[in-house]
Design a protein around this nucleic acid. Structure first.
Lengths: 224, 224
DNA sequence: ACGATCCTCCAAAGATCTTTGGAGGAATGG
DNA sequence: CCATTCCTCCAAAGATCTTTGGAGGATCGT
């Protein structure tokens, strides 16, 4: 049957996209790219793999049309092909987390979440209100390049590495809300722990930049 | 670093879910399961593969917690673990179709869509209105088991195989809207072509049952 | 034109997946 | 308790993916 061939081809092509999400290394690259564009070398370094390997994985993502590239001199910058790709990645994480006990267990072990009694979590809606009323200091604790590529309006950049130096200035001032890459990112957890230990009142955004962007909320780029 | 190990494990577990969507055969099974539960044998037959192969693929889906099973006598019925899984599958199809020229090309070849000038497409919103005003006959042209597992309220079952016999009764009566599995399914296209050739005024729903269900619209099971 | 940098492509080894037939397990009906 | 049905598990062959080092292409600055 000719029609069966054509149907098979449709699923074959769909599987190209599915396969792109079927490798831990590639997911790690997608996770990084969801925070903004990066060069191959930067991606390889951040995801701890050889440049050849990173390039090969990026070709797979490119073949699936999930990423696009921009050349700047000798460097090639990769980025997600669109917000819908970030949305698909976020949706997959949500389903995986809700459906798979293995995923949620691995995630809890990584985030070091104290089972039940974590206090001080702020939802996106609450954050919008708190920002409007100016009652808090919003900290973006991601690496500098990611902050520059896009952050929540009103957020100050305070990377984890230099957060300890800022504790003095934050103590006693407006309470802090910290955020990072998303619900699978440990940085905001670490920031809240660190600040709490320094006597600074700190909570964290429920998820992070990925979910903020996917929800269609405003994002501002550059140093602000 | 211990933290890196834990992070890697999170991505490894995520990749288990991603991999599940990374095989054409498995996607075909998911596509079928999105229409309702089925036994292993029925799935193997419908997707044209050996029972062992189907079982193996189903184990992969089960390991990713994307499907669940129900035993009935010697038969095992598989179904999607939840509507969120169907939603993820639908989202992946949408992204794949919009991003990948290969996917949309393969799809057009399969659906045999006349490039631009296809008339008579009804959106979900329009269908809801048309149903409320009773101005149309809504036909579900999927196989019987899928109709029974869940269909749009008010739809009559008219499988493709026996549609020609119904043409006489439909001619001159209320115009027809036909639907099938979803936007990657050819049956409604075929139905509209067939009815049109018989002189019956027929249009098709823009997508199908998968998108209807994913949108949270009402579904009724059994013969109605 | 040349060297330096950054990336992609190539080839090959190693790892992982897919498919198959058949053995074996679970449930049913006589 | 035996035969039947339906499914899962096993083992092995074949196919596909991943990772690597190094060759080679593109771009830039000198």
């Amino acid at each position: 049957m000719e029609a069966d061939d054509k149907r098979s081809r449709v699923f074959d092509e769909l599987a190209v996209v599915g396969k792109a999400f079927g490798s831990a290394k590639r997911l790690e690259l997608v996770d990084l790219l969801a925070q903004g564009e990066r060069t191959v070398e930067a991606l390889a370094r951040a995801a701890d793999m050889g440049v050849s390997t990173a390039s090969a994985h990026l070709q797979v993502l490119k073949l699936a049309n999930l990423v696009s590239t921009r050349r700047e001199g000798t460097k090639v910058h990769y980025r997600l092909a669109g917000d819908d790709v970030a949305g698909l990645y976020a949706a997959m994480r949500t389903v995986a987390r809700e459906r798979s006990a293995d995923v949620s267990r691995a995630l809890e072990a990584y985030l070091d979440v104290p089972g039940s009694g974590e206090v001080g979590i702020v939802s996106r809606e609450q954050l919008t209100d708190l920002l409007a009323s100016g009652e808090i200091t919003l900290l973006d604790v991601r690496p500098r390049e990611e902050y520059l590529a896009g952050h929540i309006p009103g957020a100050r950049h305070a990377p984890l590495g230099s957060l300890a130096d800022e504790a003095d200035g934050l103590r006693g001032a407006a309470p802090v809300v910290a955020y990072c890459r998303g619900s699978f990112c440990v940085m905001a957890h670490d920031a809240v722990r660190l600040l709490g230990g320094e006597g600074v009142e700190a909570r964290r955004l429920e998820d992070g930049m990925l979910e903020w962007r996917t929800a269609g909320l405003p994002v501002v780029a550059g140093a602000s």
